[in-house]
Lab assay of single mutants.
Amino acid sequence: LVRYRTISKIPQITLNFVDLKGDPFLASPTSDREIIAPKIKERTHNVTEKVTQVLSLGADVLPEYKLQAPRIHRWTILHYSPFKAVWDWLILLLVIYTAVFTPYSAAFLLKETEEGPPATECGYACQPLAVVDLIVDIMFIVDILINFRTTYVNANEEVVSHPGRIAVHYFKGWFLIDMVAAIPFDLLIFGSGSEELIGLLKTARLLRLVRVARKLDRYSEYGAAVLFLLMCTFALIAHWLACIWYAIGNMEQPHMDSRIGWLHNLGDQIGKPYNSSGLGGPSIKDKYVTALYFTFSSLTSVGFGNVSPNTNSEKIFSICVMLIGSLMYASIFGNVSAIIQRLYSGTARYHTQMLRVREFIRFHQIPNPLRQRLEEYFQHAWSYTNGIDMNAVLKGFPECLQADICLHLNRSLLQHCKPFRGATKGCLRALAMKFKTTHAPPGDTLVHAGDLLTALYFISRGSIEILRGDVVVAILGKNDIFGEPLNLYARPGKSNGDVRALTYCDLHKIHR
């Protein structure tokens, strides 16, 4: 019993810090008490220290592992850092350059016999395009090294910054494609005289377009951006097909006994025919423009016929181009109408809503002055909100995010209106959640004399007048207030005048 009563005193000691020596009952000389009392004092002292730490809000209350900052290894790049964003855009520009100039170089340097010394005699450094290609190869190699040090988000939505895990993730992902696209074939085969082989191998750079397509997928929600990307894709495919079309004609031209190829026909049409040795002929500019003209006309199913396939190889390629053109029509131009419709969806919704308003007016036989006010209010409210119901949009977000959005939407009023000066951010967040926005066209009466005042109004834009009878008592403008002081009276009061809008007004109100 003594032991039980001794232990039962522990909660009292913990909360009230009572010393055991003052209790005459606990001072009985028993061996059990002498053993338990020192333990009680020690526990009391420890609990006292913990309570003191909690009340003082000291940093040592938290466990040590929670006080440590997340460790980022040296030379690790955050995937959302500004440097990584700028670097990704730079790589994107280099990939676009590669997609345009690599097929052009591979096709127009394929057994090209233009006048001038061969590239091997001039030297590697004197070729501007080769120098640019070398810079692109170096940048792609540097990009691989950067990807080995860039964080990523795993399946659990955690940012991984450990170098080993980053390397394994990159090896399992895009490393092989990036490595093949970054191989400097110019340096590996330079001086061997195989410019045709170098041009063909350099087309491996186009593998990076797969990554670019995935990154550009984030802009699919913007109709104008999608339309622009589709047109660029169409032009890029036409450019690639033009390079292939020229390569076919250029390879067949020296081996044909009869002059029936499209390059021969082009030379005869523009007065620059090929001679018996295969030299001469149109310039590279004429060849490229004509090839691009043929691919565009074939892809769009126009086909004027002034550039036509004559050999079997050219006919087979033309059939493939027609098939590609039909697929592009289905996948690209078939979506253009939907994209344009999405661009004008706001206008369509406006006309639909206006039609419903006019049908309501016609069905209920609203008189002319009231009908005009109804239409003007709808037009003004639509121009202010673009038909978007803010309350319906915010309803799907958590309250903390709703408060931040409301604070942002009402920031101008909260910053410049005098009653809100000096208020804490928590108070402003709470008030912003209570605001209701209303609009009024010129001549609209917001409050009639004798109406119950259940709200306090803040003028965000425009001006109003307060009338008693036919006498203008006051004219209020931006950041002015009218209405009933909230919670100042037990019952809502009545208006002693009319409140009429002089201009288009936007008002925020808080109800009782």
Rank of each mutant, 00 (worst) to 15 (best):
L428K: 15
A69V: 06
K202E: 01
W87K: 01
A238Q: 01
M390Q: 09
Y219I: 11
L78A: 11
S258K: 15
W87Y: 02
Y293C: 08
F108V: 01
E114A: 15
L394T: 03
G271I: 01
I177P: 08
L78Q: 08
W89K: 01
L93T: 05
L266H: 01
L374V: 14
G223P: 07
L374C: 10
M322A: 04
L207I: 14
L129A: 09
R74A: 08
H264I: 01
R429L: 03
D178T: 01
Y97Q: 01
D186C: 11
R214T: 04
L227M: 13
E157K: 13
G325L: 01
G280K: 01
I324D: 02
E112P: 14
R211K: 07
D133R: 01
N386C: 10
P367G: 06
L446Q: 01
S258L: 09
P369W: 03
Y170E: 01
G426L: 02
E114C: 04
I77E: 01
S337P: 01
S283D: 10
G443P: 01
N410Y: 07
V132T: 03
N156D: 09
T424R: 08
F435M: 11
A247V: 14
P309G: 01
D217W: 05
Q253G: 08
L92A: 03
D286S: 01
E121Y: 12
V132R: 01
L78S: 07
T102G: 03
H79W: 01
A225Y: 06
V289K: 01
S308F: 01
T120V: 07
E195M: 14
L279V: 09
L263C: 01
P369N: 07
S220A: 11
Y170A: 01
R165D: 11
D137L: 01
C126Q: 03
R74Q: 09
F83S: 08
I405C: 05
S313H: 03
V302C: 14
S345Y: 14
Y350G: 01
I388W: 12
C232G: 12
P442Q: 14
I141P: 01
D268G: 02
L67K: 03
H239L: 01
E158D: 09
S326T: 15
L414E: 02
E375D: 04
P103D: 01
F234L: 13
L227I: 14
G249P: 01
D133F: 01
V226K: 10
Y97I: 01
W75R: 04
L266W: 01
G199D: 08
S383K: 04
L343K: 06
A213H: 04
A432F: 05
H79A: 01
M322D: 01
C406P: 01
S194F: 15
S412K: 07
F234A: 03
D186E: 13
F304K: 04
A338S: 06
V160K: 01
E114M: 13
T311S: 01
L93H: 01
N265H: 13
S412H: 13
A338E: 03
V212N: 06
L200C: 12
R358A: 04
V132H: 01
D257A: 11
I166H: 01
L78P: 05
Y104I: 01
N391S: 08
L374H: 01
H239G: 01
Q353R: 11
Y124R: 03
V86R: 01
L236P: 01
K202D: 01
R421E: 12
M322P: 01
F190L: 11
L292C: 01
F294P: 01
A291N: 01
A99S: 03
P442K: 09
G116K: 09
L279C: 13
K418A: 13
L94H: 03
L343D: 12
L327F: 01
T120I: 04
A348G: 07
L229W: 08
S298G: 14
N312V: 03
A403Q: 10
A242L: 01
Q353C: 03
I189G: 13
I189P: 13
Y288F: 01
K272S: 01
L266F: 01
I135R: 01
S345G: 05
L355D: 13
S297Y: 01
L327M: 04
Y80R: 05
F171C: 14
A440K: 03
C232Y: 01
L176A: 11
F108Y: 01
T295H: 01
W245S: 01
A392S: 08
E112D: 11
T98M: 01
A381W: 14
F234S: 01
F435S: 02
I177E: 01
V136E: 01
E375P: 01
L414N: 02
Y344S: 11
G164D: 05
S331M: 10
L241M: 04
L401K: 01
K84Q: 04
G278S: 04
S412V: 09
L109M: 13
V210G: 11
G267S: 01
R211I: 01
N275H: 04
T295F: 01
N386D: 04
L209Y: 01
D404R: 02
Y124S: 03
V336N: 03
P273I: 01
K202M: 01
T445G: 02
L279R: 09
A106V: 09
Q127E: 04
A204I: 05
Y384C: 06
G267P: 01
A69R: 14
T311N: 01
F435D: 03
E196N: 15
L241A: 01
C232I: 04
P441S: 08
W89P: 01
P82H: 07
F185S: 04
A130G: 03
G325K: 01
I141D: 03
A392K: 14
A392N: 07
M390L: 08
L413Q: 01
V159W: 03
V336G: 03
Q127M: 12
F420C: 01
R71N: 07
V180C: 14
I332A: 03
G164R: 14
A403R: 04
T203V: 11
I339L: 10
E314H: 01
S161H: 12
C122Q: 01
S277Q: 09
F333E: 03
A403W: 02
V100H: 01
A182D: 04
R214H: 08
P163K: 01
I96S: 01
E112K: 11
T102M: 08
A155F: 09
D133E: 15
R373L: 03
P441T: 08
N410E: 02
L78W: 06
I177S: 04
Q353H: 10
A330N: 01
Q253I: 15
I339N: 04
D217F: 05
I244D: 01
F363G: 01
T295K: 01
Y246P: 01
Y288I: 01
Y329V: 09
A181C: 03
G199R: 15
G116S: 07
L78K: 14
L197I: 11
G443N: 10
N310S: 05
Y246V: 09
A423E: 01
G426Y: 01
G281M: 01
Q269D: 01
T113S: 07
D88A: 01
W245T: 01
A291Q: 01
S297C: 04
I366C: 01
R421L: 08
G223D: 14
L279N: 06
I270P: 01
A348F: 14
T76E: 01
E221N: 06
I166Y: 01
S220G: 05
R371I: 01
K434F: 03
M328K: 03
K66R: 11
Q269E: 01
R218V: 05
N410T: 07
L145M: 15
A181W: 01
S81L: 01
S326L: 07
K172H: 05
V131F: 07
R208F: 01
G164L: 13
L129C: 04
T290F: 01
H408I: 01
S301I: 01
G271D: 01
T352V: 08
F363L: 11
M251I: 08
E195A: 15
I72A: 14
P441K: 08
A242R: 01
Q68Y: 06
P117D: 04
Y384E: 15
Q353A: 09
T424D: 12
A119W: 01
L323E: 01
K287A: 13
R71K: 15
R214L: 01
A291C: 01
L394Q: 04
I237N: 01
N156M: 13
F175T: 01
W240K: 01
G305A: 14
I198G: 09
P117M: 15
I91N: 07
A247L: 05
G123D: 04
W89I: 07
N312H: 01
Q269P: 01
V95N: 01
